[in-house]
Structure formats: structure tokens, C-alpha cells
């Protein structure tokens, strides 16, 4: 999926970013980028997805949050932010209302913290759960007393 031309121009002129699939954006500009894309007609939120990357020699322990938005019918843009574990990324709920549940789910499962989220509670797992199951270091068969 190629990035449309107007988005490439927008990225280069306003943000000084290279286009790509996905676009990598810094944490302090992600809300601005989301707003700019929404103004450019990308009003459809496809998904918010996070993935966990354990610490390597070059990088610290971190997660990536990828947002994918769409301008109907076909244009699609994905942009991602890198969030070191223990730090947070600003939420996109003010821009896309749908980020509410999506970011909650990713917080619950992957553990990415979205700063300023109105209701950052667990959504899939019980409230008293410990750990975030989709992190790479989380054992799949973690016991949870008393039901398993």
C-alpha cells in the first residue's frame, strides 16, 4: 500500500518526515500528525496496535504503537511511535474517538501507556490482573489463582 502524494507532501513540508509504510513519528508530534491526517480526510480509524520488543544491545526495552487511518475509499496511512517501557505516549482519543477502546486494549495486553487517556483501565482481563500478556517475556501459561 503506497502512501498518497498529498500525505507525502504534508509529511515533508510540515513534519520533515519521510513517508513510508509505516511512517515513524516521534512521540511529541504524534497528536499533531493525527490531527493533520484527519484534516486531510483520513477520518476512518482502522486500528491501533502495539507490539513489544525486548531490550537488545542497541535498543532499550520498548513497545511500538501503530495507528492506521484511512481516507475512503482506498487511501491508507499507518504511522507508528516507539515508546520505551516505563514511559508514555500521548493519547489520540481527542483526535479519534475510536482510540478510546483500542488504546485501552493495547494497554491491557501489551502494556503501552497512553498519557492523557480518559479511561485507561483494563478491558479484556480482570481488573486485578498482573502483567501484560502480549509482552514477549510473559509466559503463556501464567497461573492465576484460583481458577487456573
Amino acid at each position: 500500500m503506497t502512501v498518497p502524494d498529498d500525505v507525502t507532501r504534508l509529511l515533508a513540508e510540515r513534519f520533515g518526515l519521510e513517508s513510508g509504510d509505516p511512517i515513524t513519528v516521534s512521540r511529541d508530534r504524534v497528536v499533531e500528525l493525527g490531527g493533520a491526517l484527519k484534516e486531510a480526510g483520513f477520518t476512518y480509524l482502522v486500528y491501533v496496535a502495539c507490539a513489544h520488543y525486548p531490550a537488545t544491545d542497541a535498543e532499550p526495552d520498548r513497545t511500538v504503537a501503530e495507528y492506521r487511518v484511512r481516507r475512503l475509499p482506498v487511501d491508507e496511512v499507518a504511522f507508528r511511535v516507539w515508546v520505551p517501557t516505563g514511559e508514555s505516549t500521548p493519547t489520540l482519543v481527542p483526535v479519534f474517538a475510536g482510540c478510546d477502546w483500542q488504546e485501552r486494549e493495547q494497554f491491557d495486553l501489551v502494556g503501552t501507556i497512553f498519557a492523557g487517556h480518559p479511561d485507561l483501565r483494563r478491558i479484556m482481563l480482570p481488573e486485578d490482573w498482573e502483567g501484560h500478556p502480549l509482552r514477549r517475556d510473559y509466559d503463556i501459561a501464567t497461573r492465576h489463582h484460583p481458577w487456573r
Partner: peptide, 8 residues
């Protein structure tokens, strides 16, 4: 429709 698109 607008809300629906924002919610995906």
C-alpha cells in the same frame, strides 16, 4: 456516520 468512522 461521522462517529462510526472515527470508531472504525
Amino acid at each position: 456516520a461521522k462517529l462510526a468512522m472515527e470508531l472504525g
